[in-house]
Simulated scan of single mutants.
Amino acid sequence: MPAVDCHAHAFDLTRQGWGGDRGFDIASNELGTAPQFLHMLASHGFTHGVLINPLGGYGADNTYMLEAIAAAGGRLKGVALLPDATAEAEVHRLVEGGIVGIRFNLDFPTSPPLRAHALARAREAGWFVQIHYHHGESFTAAIPLLRAAGLPVIIDHSGRPELPGGLQQPAFRALLDFGRDSDAVIKLSGVFRFSETGSPYVDTDPYIAALIEAFGIDRCIWGSDWPFLRATSRTDFGPLLAALHRVVPDAADRERVLWRNPARLFGMQGEGR
């Protein structure tokens, strides 16, 4: 069965140097090239991946991601950053190069800002909007603009709930409500970023289960977040995938999360069951 890792980053300093507008630096142990990513996926039985421009390292320059997609033979798609000043010719190049969405980092000052103009450009390009945030209040404030935009929305890293706040914390409840009354997609990723106990991340299970209930299994996707930028402890692909299997024990449901849903969202081709 084909499967998609919907969240990863790739860097190759022999192909592209660091960007002056980067949001944070990439440590040497966090480097990973696109061919290394594809090999890692194949080692775990995955066939496709989605590269995300994380703002760190290359900043808003999407050059290496486009090169990696072109060399991958249809196995990769990309989510770019789109500064306000980006020319229409560059937007066309991104569309033609396999970019399927743009990302906004709500809590990074150097990120392209979430504005109606940027959302309109995404709509014209046929893209979805991917939202990442560290603080739930940032997402809550953005909800009215996202609702008015009229284009698909993907929420990164399970909304990064703060586990001490519990399932009833206002920002997480707002995310669940957004899932129930919109067509938004939740990315069941990043559990290592908000777990308090670490691997095997059992403390995150109730939050993932609540997200699946609110969004519905057909609007859930998964990503590893390889090569685990800024992780605070040892992180590996296998335990993260095992955490998904634990919360989604039904094989048919996992097929939706790992293949059918992302294939539909990102326009990927492969042999299904």
Rank of each mutant, 00 (worst) to 15 (best):
Y64W: 13
Y64G: 07
R75M: 06
L51Y: 11
A87M: 09
H48W: 11
L76H: 04
G56L: 04
L55K: 00
L81I: 04
A60N: 12
L66G: 03
D61T: 07
L66F: 02
D61H: 05
N62I: 05
L51G: 05
G59S: 04
L66V: 06
D84H: 14
T86I: 12
E67M: 15
A68S: 15
G73C: 07
D61P: 13
I69M: 09
P83F: 10
G73I: 03
T63G: 08
L66P: 11
M65C: 09
D84N: 13
K77W: 10
G57L: 03
A68G: 05
G73V: 07
D61L: 02
A60T: 15
A71V: 04
P54I: 05
A71R: 14
A71N: 14
N62D: 11
M65V: 08
L55M: 12
A87P: 08
G56R: 00
L55N: 06
M65N: 02
P83K: 01
L82G: 04
L82A: 07
L76I: 03
P83W: 06
E67C: 08
V50A: 05
E88Y: 03
A60W: 05
L66D: 05
G56Y: 06
G73D: 10
M65S: 01
D61V: 08
L82S: 08
A85K: 15
A80W: 13
L81Q: 14
